[in-house]
Design a protein around this nucleic acid. Structure first.
Lengths: 239, 239
DNA sequence: CGTTATATTGAAGTGCGTCAAAAAGTGTGG
DNA sequence: CCACACTTTTTGACGCACTTCAATATAACG
C-alpha cells in the first residue's frame, strides 16, 4: 500500500525497516475517490494528511473571475497535503483528476512520529521541500518559458516522477486530464494549449491524446524544454 | 539578533523560553553581505542554513537565454535556505538585493535540534511550508493575473510580511530593487514593468520609486490584486 | 442514437515583448 | 562644484504570443 511512497523516499535516502514499519503504522483507512472530487477544501481544519496510492490529483487556486491555476500535480506515492500537518489548513483545494485510491495519516500519529523518529521526520520534511522545489520550477516555467516549452517541461517532469514509482509504460504514460485542465497547469487557455500540443506533435517530440502521453523523442523533448532534473533531487543522500 | 525570526514564529504559534534559547544556541556567526552578492549557488553542498537578519534577498532560477525568474523574496526573520537542511543542496541561487546582515545555523546543530525539540522542529518545518505557500500564490499570479495585478499583489504581500517584523514605515517600506529585478519577480520585461507601475500610480494605489514603496490606498490595492492573506497563515495555531 | 463533453480550427483583438532612443538619476574623481 | 561615465527609468513604434469569440468536428456515453 505504501510501496510507491517507499520507492519515492528510497530514491532519496535510506529508510530503515524500523522506519518503514513506522510509516505502515501511520497509515490507516484506505478510500477510493471518484474523478473530479475535491478531497481537501481551502480553509477547512485538517486532522489528517492524505497519501495518494493510485491515480492523479492536483492542487489548485482560483481567482474571482473563475480563472484557475493548478499549482501542482500529484502521482502515486505523493502526500497530497503533508504540508497541512504543520499548516493545519490549506490555502488551496486538492482535487482528484482521475479516480484515485488514497490512505490517511492521522496528525496525532504524525506528531507522535516526530517525537520518536527524527530521521524519518526529516525525510517527510524533505518530501514537502521537494514539493516546494517543483513549485519553484513551475514559477520559472510560468514566468519565463513559452507555452510550448512549458508543456514540454511538464511532460518531462511527470515522465521522470512516474518512472520512479514504476508507472511508465515503455515511453508512454497516463496523464488523465483534458486539454482544459492541462491549460490550467500551464497558465494557458484551452485554445492555445491545443495549438501548443499540435506544435510539440509536429516537432516529433510528444503526443497527448485523451489522457495519455506518448513520448516520441525524450531527448529532443528534454532539450526543447531545458529540462534539468536537479530540482527533483534524485540522488540518495543522508537527509 | 533572532528577534525578527521570533516575531515571525510567534505570530503563528507559541515559542517557549526553552525553544527560544534553543534557537539562540543554533545561531552562531554573523556576517554582513554586500548587495548583489550570491550567497548560495545552486548545486553547492550545504552544511549550514542562513537566517536573514536585515536586508532583502531573493531566490532565482534562470534559463540558458539568460532570462531569470525570481521565485521568492526574503525579508528580515526569514530563513533563506532552511529547505537546504533536508535537500542538502539547492536547485536555485540565493542573492542579496540590498546590503544584508545574516547569521548561520549549522546543519549538525539543526539535526541535533530535531532530535531534542520536536515541536520546534515542526515550527521550522512550518516555516518552509510557508515558503511553499508563497510559491503557490506566485504561481497563481504568474499564471492567471495581469501584469498590473501581479505587481499589486506583490506589493500587498511584502507590505504584510514587513508589518509582522516591524519594518513598515507608516504606509511605506523599503523594497531595495530596481524595475528590472521587480520585473524578474513578476515575469515581465523592464519596459512593461515600468508601464504597469505607472498604471498603479495613476490609479492612486501605490508608488514605487528608487527602491521605496509608498502605499497610497492599501484597501484599493488589495481589492485590485484580490489579495487574500490566508496563504500567509497569520493565525496563532498549535503546530 | 441522441446528448454532452472535448478537441480543433479560424479570425480578430490585446497584453506584453522587442528594439531603439532619450531622459533622469547616481556615483566618481578632479 | 562641475564633468563625466554609468545605471536606471521612461517613452515610442512595431511585432508576436496568447486570448477571445465563434463555429465545427470528433469522441465519449447512456
Amino acid at each position: 500500500m505504501i510501496e510507491s511512497l517507499l520507492l519515492k523516499l528510497r530514491k532519496r535516502d535510506v529508510v530503515s525497516p524500523d522506519e518503514e514499519q513506522a510509516l505502515r503504522d501511520l497509515i490507516t483507512e484506505v478510500e477510493d475517490i471518484p474523478a473530479r472530487k475535491t478531497v481537501v477544501r481551502r480553509g477547512e481544519p485538517l486532522n489528517r494528511s492524505i497519501l495518494l496510492i493510485e491515480g492523479l490529483m492536483c492542487r489548485q487556486k482560483d481567482l474571482r473571475s473563475g480563472d484557475r491555476q493548478i499549482t501542482a500535480l500529484h502521482v502515486a506515492g505523493d502526500f497530497l497535503d503533508l504540508h497541512g500537518f504543520t499548516l493545519k489548513q490549506l490555502d488551496h483545494d486538492v482535487m482528484a483528476l482521475s479516480p484515485c485510491r488514497v490512505a490517511y495519516a492521522r496528525h496525532d500519529l504524525l506528531t507522535r512520529l516526530t517525537e520518536v523518529h527524527p530521521h524519518l521526520t526529516r525525510l517527510l520534511w524533505f518530501s514537502t521541500n521537494l514539493d516546494a522545489a517543483m513549485h519553484r520550477e513551475w514559477e520559472l516555467s510560468l514566468g519565463q518559458r513559452t507555452g510550448a516549452a512549458r508543456a514540454a517541461h511538464l511532460f518531462c517532469e511527470v515522465y521522470t516522477r512516474l518512472q520512479i514509482v514504476g508507472r511508465l509504460d515503455d515511453e508512454a504514460y497516463a496523464l488523465p486530464m483534458n486539454q482544459s485542465e492541462l491549460g490550467e497547469c500551464l497558465g494557458l487557455t484551452v485554445v492555445h494549449t491545443n495549438r501548443v500540443l499540435r506544435e510539440l506533435r509536429e516537432l516529433g517530440f510528444v503526443q497527448f491524446t485523451r489522457g495519455r502521453v506518448v513520448i516520441e523523442d525524450i531527448e529532443g523533448l528534454k532539450a526543447y524544454a531545458e529540462f534539468d532534473p536537479t530540482y527533483l533531487y534524485l540522488d540518495s543522500t543522508p537527509r
